[in-house]
Write a protein that binds this DNA or RNA. Sequence first.
DNA 1: AATATTTAAGTTGTGCACAATTGAATTGTG
DNA 2: CACAATTCAATTGTGCACAACTTAAATATT
Lengths: 150, 150
Amino acid sequence: MAIVDDMVCFSLYSASRATTRAYTELLAPWQLTYTQYLVLVSLWTEGDKPVREIGEMLQLDSGTLSPLLRRLEQKGFIERRRDGQDSRVVNVSLTPAGTSLRKDLAHIPAQIACGTGLPDMESAKALLATLHRITTSMQGIPAPEQPSRK
Amino acid sequence: MAIVDDMVCFSLYSASRATTRAYTELLAPWQLTYTQYLVLVSLWTEGDKPVREIGEMLQLDSGTLSPLLRRLEQKGFIERRRDGQDSRVVNVSLTPAGTSLRKDLAHIPAQIACGTGLPDMESAKALLATLHRITTSMQGIPAPEQPSRK
DNA sequence: AATATTTAAGTTGTGCACAATTGAATTGTG
DNA sequence: CACAATTCAATTGTGCACAACTTAAATATT
């Protein structure tokens, strides 16, 4: 890595992958992926919702969500049903199995928190703020002008 | 997101994806992906090296690198040649086109640095340290004991 | 009402990331 | 030397992440 800017991005990328691997390990007994877990967390905490709202929350489009939700449905954790009012909308709801999974996975956040190696809540909040700033700030990058192709 | 531990991980995941998207945008004129760019950076700064060393540096296995290097080779930026001494090893070297690409992409780190929204070098270094700690600390998660399958 | 625009979800295709396996070459050991 | 174990890269298969496109339905406009 040459320059600090690249290093920050690479460290971000490495830390993110290491975290995903840790979740994958912890979720392995349930055959769940990290992204599938995120969908379940959003349903547990905010209740049933349409695909669009899940996508807004996790910043994922239907190209990612459609097959992912199909797999979660096949596992029996969620159900998908077309909305009666607006049949473009697909409402996603937890099954009893999906709901009860919440208790079974309740040990995971603590193990992950331990895995971060962050000393206290203060540093966690500071990191959170920094990461949010990066995320929103990075959205601004997309090509303001035509980059010179050489 | 329910709990701060999940939030930290999700923020990490979001920031990493936002960063990758920014690189993708900047690299689009050259049809390069972020990971391909990382491989080129490692070759530019450290010179030609075997596949194994690239994998150690970026923490990627041959399942990721083999097809990626094939694509970089097809684009004409690198060459792969079996080592004369040890023919298990594949040495990766930059072509003239791959070498000269370094100048063409020299503007990218500054744009990304701007995109991070980090105010100064101090905060960048602090973030770097935090991310490194998370990365190494997360490696320790993998199943110390058998998780109860319920 | 007829047409155009917008919106929601799904599909297709590319490229990682990673687990698991394969195959060939090298090294280690008896 | 023989053969077991290890190493390196590639291959296969799964599941995101995302761009581009399709289809159907709802809304807006004339």
